[in-house]
Design a protein around this nucleic acid. Structure first.
Lengths: 208, 208
DNA sequence: ACAGATAGCGAGTGATCACTTTTTATGTGA
DNA sequence: TCACATAAAAAGTGATCACTCGCTATCTGT
C-alpha cells in the first residue's frame, strides 16, 4: 500500500537487473530460440515496453546478458583454489570443481549464446570482446593452478583440452539434471586428465 | 521438353532426399532457429506443401534429418583406418582426421540438433535412439583403433575425452571457415592426447 | 484409355515474433 | 507545488512462423 519511493536510477537499475536475470534463466532453461522478448519480460515481471526502453533490440539484450554471464564465469574460474604442490588427487578434485562450474546455468547460458552466434554474424561480432576477455582470464587462472606443473608452452593446449572436454560434455549431456554426479566414465576421464597435468604419466589401472 | 517419366516412388524419394539435404545444409549454415520450413523448401527447390506432405511437422523433418546425419557420422568414424601397431605420429594423424570429421557439416548439423534438443523434450526423446546408436558405434570404432593400446576399462573415458574435446572445439571455434588448419594450440593438444593414448607418457618439449 | 491414387503447388490462416506508439504512473528540479 | 523528464504499461503493427486447403499434375492398375 505505501509507496516504496525509489529514485529513478534505482527503478531503472532494478528492472534492468530483473531483465538480465530473467534472460539468463530463460536461456538456460528454454534455450535460445524460445528466449523471446515476451517470455523474458514475463519472467522478469515487467512489460515488453519496459524491456525495449532499456534494450533497443533483442540482440542488445542478449549481448548485455552475455557480458554479465562472462563476468560471472570469470569469477567462478578464479574462485578455484590453487595448491602450491598438488598431487594427482588434488588436481582431480579441482577438475571436479571445474566440471560443476562448466555445468552451471551461467555457463550454460554462455554456451547457448555462443552456439547462436555461430550462425549470426552480428551476435558473433558483439560477443568477440567478451570471448577474448574470458579466454585471457581463463589462461591466467590456469597459470595460477598449474603453472608450476606444466611447461608454459603447453598450458594453452592443456587448458584447451580440459575446458573443451568439459564443454563438449555439458553439451552432449542432455540429462535434465545438470548437477547430477559424474558417471564412471567421466570420473575416470577426469582422473586421466589429472595425471596428464601432474605427472604426465597416467597410471594403468590393474584389473583384479 | 521430354517427360522424364519417373515412378511415384522415385518422385517421392527424390524430393524427400532433396528436403533432407536442404535441411542439413540449412542447419549447418544458418543454424537451428533460421531453419524454417519455408527456408528448407526454398533450398530444396520445392514448395512448402510438398514438404508437409512428407513430413507432418517441422520436428518430424528435423528428426529424420538427425537420423540421416547420425548414419553419415557413423560411416565417417568407421572410415578411419586403424593401424595394428601405431606410434605416436600415427595416432596423432588419426586424431587429425577425426578432427576434420567432427568439424564436417554433417557433424555440425548433428550438434545443432543436439543443442536444440536440450530445451525441447520431444526432440530429445526422438533423438535418443540415434544418440545411443552413435555412441555404441563410436565405441566400437575406438576399439578397432586403440583396443590394443589401452586397457578396455579406459576406452570409454579416452573416447569421451577425445570426442568431447573435439566437439567443444568445434563449438567454440566461431571462425566462418571450419576447414581451416588447426592452430598451434590445437596441434599441441592433439599431440598430447596422442601421447595419452599411445605411451601414456607425453614427452616434455625441451625449450631451446 | 480412363478412373482413382499419389505428388506437388501456392494461396491462404491464425498465432506469434520483434518492435512501435500512445498513454499512464512516478520521480525530479525550481 | 507544478512543469518537466523519465519509467513502465497497454495496445497496437507489419512480418513471419508452422501449418492447411483446394487445385492441378503426374503416375498406376485395369
Amino acid at each position: 500500500m505505501t509507496a516504496p519511493r525509489r529514485t529513478q536510477a534505482e527503478r531503472r537499475d532494478a528492472t534492468i537487473t530483473r531483465l538480465l536475470d530473467a534472460t539468463v534463466e530463460c536461456l538456460a532453461t528454454r534455450g535460445y530460440a524460445a528466449t523471446t522478448t515476451s517470455a523474458v519480460a514475463a519472467a522478469a515481471g515487467v512489460s515488453q515496453g519496459a524491456l525495449f526502453r532499456h534494450f533497443p533490440t533483442r540482440q542488445d539484450l542478449l549481448v548485455a546478458t552475455a557480458e554479465v554471464v562472462a563476468e560471472r564465469n570469470v569469477a567462478a574460474f578464479r574462485g578455484l583454489a590453487g595448491d602450491p604442490s598438488p598431487d594427482v588427487e588434488a588436481v582431480a578434485a579441482v577438475l571436479g570443481h571445474l566440471r560443476s562450474v562448466v555445468l552451471s546455468p551461467a555457463n550454460q547460458t554462455w554456451r547457448e549464446l555462443l552456439v547462436a552466434a555461430r550462425a549470426d554474424p552480428g551476435l558473433r561480432l558483439a560477443l568477440l570482446p567478451a570471448r577474448e576477455g574470458l579466454q585471457e582470464q581463463m589462461l591466467a587462472a590456469a597459470t595460477d593452478l598449474w603453472g608450476n606443473l606444466l611447461p608454459p608452452q603447453d598450458l594453452p593446449a592443456v587448458l584447451s583440452i580440459v575446458v573443451n572436454f568439459l564443454d563438449g560434455l555439458a553439451f552432449s549431456a542432455l540429462d535434465p539434471d545438470p548437477s547430477a554426479p559424474p558417471g564412471r566414465t567421466v570420473e575416470r576421464a577426469l582422473e586421466l586428465l589429472a595425471h596428464l597435468i601432474v605427472d604426465r604419466r597416467p597410471a594403468t589401472e590393474e584389473i583384479p
